[in-house]
Amino acid sequence: MTKIRIAIQKSGRLNNDSLSMLKDCGISIDNGKDQLKADARNFPMEVFYLRNGDIPQYLRDGVVDIAIIGENVLIEKGEDIGIVEKLGFSKCRVSLAVPKAMEYNSVNDFEGKRIATSYPNTVKNYLKERGVNADLHIINGSVEIAPNIGLADAICDIVSSGSTLFKNNLKEVEVMLKSEAVLAESTNISAARKEILEKLRFRIKSVLQARQSKYVLLNAPNEKLKNIIQILPGMRSPTVLPLAEEGWSSVHTVIKKDKFWEVIDELKRAGAEGILVCPIEKMVL
């Protein structure tokens, strides 16, 4: 039986979020402690647990067919590898940071400076586009300590909350790129495995749509119904059902999470009452 081979990060937040995504897609993984390879019980899939930085080469060599990986890693090590789907989790940015006491005006301040980083290609390309020359020190590990021990004048690293920079007396000054987890595809994937990938993509899209949406039910007086319906975005159009109380209707619709509070405020002003908000587990379009 043909199985699709997927790589995910061996440990860390991306590992947890990736397994959560597969679980939400209805895929159960037989995963024992410290296993480097596991099978799915109810989907034709093998899971490989790999170091994040090694995944692009495994994709390139066709050892795995697809991977859930940080977009920043592909930009650094796998620009030739295609992105199938952006997954919306493990969001971060790759930034340049300097000591808090350093006065910073523009990217030109990095001219001739020593920058410690695990992302040399990303930094080199970013500075080259801006005509800046710097001395890069490649460090595989925690780079935040480099300015404090005199190894570098600045660093380039992943930033999520910024708390690690703050603790190391650094400040973020240039955001070079924004990143999130993506589903990447090997150029060597077979036609049979490509079919399995499309089934997986369908499930992932349903999960992503659900995560980005809320199901809303509300009561509305019939004389205000027209105005309330005009406010609602809905997937196609809202569902309207008569209530037992004469002159009132129940309205059901879906609202995108990023516009949720603005729409709710408008609905209240338009006369909506008894607004009930529910999470959506899956949304198939």
Rank of each mutant, 00 (worst) to 15 (best):
K33W: 11
D61F: 11
D80E: 15
D39V: 05
R93W: 04
G82I: 01
I69M: 07
V207M: 04
W261Q: 13
I155L: 07
D30E: 14
E71L: 12
N121W: 03
N169W: 04
L197R: 07
M235R: 11
N188C: 03
D17N: 12
P242A: 13
I280K: 11
L151V: 12
R130N: 02
A7T: 03
G131E: 03
L243F: 02
N168G: 00
I29L: 07
K199V: 00
L170G: 10
L50H: 09
V143G: 07
L183W: 07
G141L: 02
L208G: 04
G70S: 14
Y49K: 02
D80F: 04
E281S: 10
Y104I: 00
N169S: 10
P221V: 04
M21E: 06
L197V: 00
G271Y: 11
D135F: 07
T239P: 01
Q230F: 13
R269N: 14
S11P: 00
A67Y: 01
V143R: 04
Q212E: 13
A38F: 04
D39G: 09
I155V: 15
K128G: 01
M283E: 14
K33A: 13
Y215A: 06
G150N: 06
D39H: 10
E246Y: 15
I115Q: 05
G141V: 02
E180L: 05
E245P: 09
I4E: 03
F110W: 01
G12E: 00
L217H: 11
M45S: 09
N15S: 07
A154K: 10
R51Q: 14
K205P: 01
V98E: 05
L14Y: 02
G78N: 08
S163F: 11
I145N: 11
G247R: 09
C92V: 01
E46L: 13
I139W: 02
E46C: 08
I75S: 08
S213I: 00
Q9S: 13
D258H: 15
I75V: 12
N133V: 08
K256V: 05
L170T: 09
F166W: 02
N222P: 00
K37R: 13
S95C: 12
N219F: 07
K10A: 12
A191R: 11
G234H: 12
V132D: 03
N31H: 13
L197D: 02
K194H: 13
L218G: 03
R13K: 14
A101G: 02
I8Y: 08
L285H: 13
S237R: 14
K171T: 09
R13E: 15
E180P: 07
K205C: 02
I149E: 08
I149C: 11
K282Q: 10
S190V: 00
N168C: 06
N219I: 11
K128Q: 10
L50Q: 10
N121K: 12
S250Q: 15
K3L: 04
I280S: 08
N52G: 15
E223M: 05
E273C: 08
P238R: 07
G271W: 10
N16P: 00
